[in-house]
Nucleic acid binder design. Structure first.
Lengths: 216, 216
DNA sequence: TAGATTGTTAATCGATTAACAATC
DNA sequence: TAGATTGTTAATCGATTAACAATC
């Protein structure tokens, strides 16, 4: 049933978490069967697209019946790599870093927060949810010795590339970057950016075009 | 020179902030002229795409010369609606709300933070950067009376739709939503989501497919 | 069996890239 | 003028939608 996933487009991948979120909701409401048509109404994607998306990974459905909610939820989790745990560190223990470490849903999804790092002496040594804020000097060593998978960068844009280099030297596998910068990392290190100002500027564009539309 | 912007694709819009960011960098380095080819090398987009993108909005360049950095920077700012100020409130004064209010770059870009709101009595009355945390009960009235443009939702997913409804009743124009939920808002209210877990799950997918590739 | 709904192919649509004439 | 680079059209590529045969 499993196909070659190696050339799935990112557009498909980015829809999977939304499918999974709605499937979770269905499970919470004790609904065990769903058709692409019903999922379409919930998610706003077309039924055709949903069937296409899922079929990239195998035939999870059954003709005349639809999809089993539990099974599909589990399969999507596996595709996304959520059937395992990830060792994680947060670099930058300011408000954003703290927001992430306090958002326990990430832990529940398997992203284990092992340490935070900062340069601010006032923060070093503190603990948040039992997670210690360490001196940023120890980052590379800690990442290497603890086989950390993911580094979450919550520093200024000035520090971000320096931190990324340290993470890479410590053999990090992926970087989740919140700094407003385009980081340079080797091909084998996966990079996912959250560029907040790009998102905010998109909203301001939408407001502008909305008000222009109203003038018509 | 100005064209009808009403049917520009979102793919184009979401590239504009990146162009603008690199143009700002050029300005800081006193570079006043840039070709689509050089911009291509910096941003990673093709030169052809850059010229196509910019030509959606008018001919900002000059044959044989390229683009004037200042002028292009300004134009992109105008297109994105960054040539004006926005009245903004943050709902939810936890770490994430505080991270946003403390990130002063948004203020510099014209997004004026006028108040924060929370239900937690321990937070109500406190001030962050001179911005007061108010009782969430006052949200709708405050938004209406102060002509707030943008509401930033940093609450739990359970509270998010309730807050969105209050913002809408207060005549909000746009919502920047950080809660992991798909909010229902009327068509005239613009909605931009930052779904952090979707981004993190995408990273975990990338890690998984990267390790599968290595096995080959 | 009849009805429902998937899996999958084909058609359409939209976005990106290539090419080059226009022009500074 | 010669050289460079845009603006813009045409070609290609990829993603979405439609349609329907397969099948539960």
């Amino acid at each position: 049933m499993e196909r070659d996933h190696s050339k799935i487009s990112m557009a498909v991948i980015r829809r999977l978490p939304k499918y999974r979120r709605y499937l979770e909701e269905l499970l919470n409401n004790d609904i065990h069967r769903i058709s692409s048509n019903e999922l379409s109404k919930m998610t706003g994607f077309t039924a055709s697209q949903i069937r296409q998306d899922l079929n990239n990974f195998g035939g999870f459905g059954q003709q005349g019946y639809g999809y089993n909610v539990e099974a599909l939820y589990e399969e999507i989790g596996k595709i996304l790599g959520l059937d395992r745990e990830y060792e994680t560190v947060i670099v930058g223990a300011g408000n954003l870093g703290q927001a992430i470490v306090n958002y326990t849903n990430f832990e529940k999804s398997g992203f284990k927060m092992r340490a935070m790092f900062d340069v601010n002496p006032k923060l070093i040594g503190l603990k948040i949810r039992d997670i210690e804020i360490k001196d940023a000097d120890e980052l590379e060593t800690f990442v290497r010795e603890n086989n950390i998978d993911i580094g979450i960068i919550c520093t200024t844009k000035e520090q971000a590339q320096i931190v990324a280099d340290q993470l890479v030297r410590g053999n990090i596998r992926g970087i989740w970057n919140f700094a407003p910068a385009d980081l340079q990392v080797p091909d084998h290190v996966m990079l996912e950016n959250v560029h907040l100002s790009e998102s905010l500027f998109t909203l301001s564009y939408l407001l502008k075009s909305q008000s222009e539309d109203e003038e018509r």
